[in-house]
């Protein structure tokens, strides 16, 4: 964890607007596809899930793993991404 990825920085840099779910750090094509299949097509829906889980890291990661078979790192990246975004804009 030397730093954050470019994707992360890009996402955190601005309001998310209508960004697709694949814009989230840790979510690539594959995970994005799965998430869309589960109904989470926009980044803000994932944010909504994140918020509904009350920003709980463990639960959110667990959910990520559950819903789109994310790896620990991917879930962690995504959580970090949303967390930072919330700190910035929420």
């Amino acid at each position: 964890m030397s730093g954050t990825s470019q994707k992360h920085r890009n996402f955190v840099a601005e309001p998310m607007g209508d960004k697709p779910v694949t814009e989230l750090a840790g979510v690539g094509e594959t995970l994005g596809g799965r998430l869309e299949a589960a109904g989470f097509d926009k980044a803000y829906t994932v944010l909504g899930q994140y918020l509904i889980l009350k920003k709980d890291a463990e639960l959110f990661k667990e959910w990520m793993k559950d819903v789109c078979h994310a790896s620990s790192k991917q879930a962690s990246d995504c959580y970090q991404c949303l967390n930072d975004w919330c700190e910035e804009f929420l």
Binding site: A38, G39, Q49, I52, L53, L59, E62, W63, D66, V67
Partner: peptide, 8 residues
Amino acid sequence: TTRKIIIK
């Protein structure tokens, strides 16, 4: 969406 994870 959260039900499953909560049960788990």
